[in-house]
Amino acid sequence: MSRNPYKTKAITRAITGAATMGEASEVSDISRTNAVVTAVFALGLGLGLLSVVGYAQASHDVAHDSRHAFSFPCH
């Protein structure tokens, strides 16, 4: 259709190139989303563990010296 084969090639390359780039950025978006979800989970787990270790009254006696040393206000 095109009278200039070089132009056609360039357009094809541009289209396939763009398609490849689109795929790549989609993949990296997915892995970025996975990363963020995992990090949110790790953050929640860390904060939950910190609450139990640093603040739960149930574990006060066994955690006593640690809490003083880390300066968690516990009594």
């Binding site: 949110v40 860390g46 904060l47 563990l49 910190l50 006593h64």
Partner: peptide, 20 residues
């Protein structure tokens, strides 16, 4: 007891930092 709680505190803070 103190050793265990120190390690748990370490893991808790490490999880928070790793998330960051």
């Amino acid at each position: 007891n103190t050793l265990s709680f120190d390690v748990l505190t370490g893991v808790a803070f490490a999880l928070i930092m790793a998330a960051g």
